[in-house]
Structures are given as C-alpha cells and as structure tokens.
Amino acid sequence: MINLNCKVETPKSLNEVITLLSHANSKTKILAGGTDLVVGKIQGSKRFIDTETLIDINKIDELHKIEFIDGKIFIGAASTFSEIEENEIISKHLPILKKAVSTIGSLQIRNRATIAGNFVNNAPCADSVPALLVYDAELELMSANGTRNISLQKFLEAPYKTQLQRNEIVTKIIISTPNKNLKGDFYKLGRRRAVAISRITLALLCEIENNFIKDIKIASGAVTPIGKRFYELENFAKEKKIEKELLINLSQKIGEEILNITGLRWSSAYKLPVVQQMFYQLLNNIMINKNENKI
C-alpha cells in the first residue's frame, strides 16, 4: 500500500477544480494519471516531496473527451494514452500522435498516464511532445480568472518547467486538422523495444508537391533539454527539391542545431551522429521511399 501523506481532493466537476485551484499554493498539485507524480514523490523528487494537497481530476469526464468540431480536434487534457491510441478521430487525423503515444511505457502506464501530464511534467524525453509540436498544438488553460490559449511550444519553458500557473489547469489540447495531403512519421529510439525511456524521438510532417518540399514541420525529443520545433531548418527546407544531397544537408543541419543548443555532453558522442543518421533515414522513408509509418 502506498501512502503519499497528502490530502486528496476529488472534485466532481471542472468548476470545482477551478475553485480548489484558486486556493492552491506551491504545495498543491493536480493528480491525473500519477505516473510521474506518485513515483517522483516516493523517490523523494524535489518537485513533489513538499506536496501536501492533491487535486484528483480522474473523475471529471469532460477532461477525457476527444471531439472533432469544425475542422478542429479537441483532446481532453486528462485523456489517457490508451484512450488516444484507440480513438478513431486521432487515428484518422493525427496518425503521428497515435504512433507516438503507442510507444509510451507499457500498456499499464498508457492506461493511466495522460496527455497533458506528459507535457506538464515536461521531461526532455516526453514522447507525445514532438508529435504535438508538429501538429502545432494549442492548449486551453483555465483558472478562476478565465480561459487563455497558448501554443504548446510557448508553454514549454525548460526541463520540468512550464508556463502553467499555480491556479491554472490545462483543460484541452486543440489541433487544427491539416486540410492538406501531408505525410509524416514519428520515430523513437529506446534501449529496448518496450517500456523504454526515449534516447531520441523525431516527428516529421511534410507536404510534398512535384518532388518539392512545400511545407515541413520537424520536432525532436530527448536530444535537446526540452522537446522542440526546428523552425529555421523548416524554412531552409521549404521550396527545395527533394534529392539525396538535400536530405544529407538537412540531417547535418539538425545535428548542428542540436549541438548549438546542448554543446558536447557525455551522451553527444552517440546521440549526435545517430540523430543525424536516423533523421536522414526518416526523410528518405517519407520523401523518397514513400514508406509512411515505417522506419
């Protein structure tokens, strides 16, 4: 039996959550799946050790809803990875997100862990983040002061830090469906084939016309301090003709950009060459071999 030594609030509605949050202090945390929080607290993590009050949002159905309205997909923040993986709207419109969440942890973890929990925790290796970034995900945050929207990239501040305020809760992830013929894939490298913490993740989404890159979105995880989009590289790639030279060049450039951000770390000797190599393979698979979802 695990005793977290916390007071646990179990609000029945989002309004109740907001009310509880308006009294929140630095020792209050929202409890969703608990797959980071509970483990972290037991391990004595500085981020959780002082927590005294938990607001358990598991009983709030509207936070689990996944809807498609007017070309926009709304994902309830407390949707579990299993719910997302099995959802038809996600399968149809956001296959890269489906693939990314299906690689997370084990089935037991996916049954509990939630999508917002993944980026609110904001570990460098959060698997859903690169996929959400290439889809330009927006977040809806609520507090007693009202509602605000923010892009995920802006929301993510630093490792294990976000823009989330003490009295706020993430309620939804909003993604406008790309109304175009896009190709893409999600790639994950771990030390084993299941229940693995990512060493490298890459998400790629692109629009190709007559063998030219019309639009491209690139994001990575686990190779930079937090999951990140590569806007400069995307701009560089746009309107260029797809050929081997270009793909090599793009792969070298992603390596350079990561190196600029991280400097040479202990893991760079392995990760830097491999991320270039696998980005090259990813580009090849999508742009030349046309193998989607296969790497």
Binding site: I248, G255, L264, S268, A269, Y280
Partner: peptide, 9 residues
C-alpha cells in the same frame, strides 16, 4: 560530431 556526407547510410 557532424557527420561527413559519406557517413550517411
């Protein structure tokens, strides 16, 4: 750390 062209597989 940046791969030379001939090192891409």
């Amino acid at each position: 750390p940046i791969l030379e062209k001939n090192k891409f597989i």
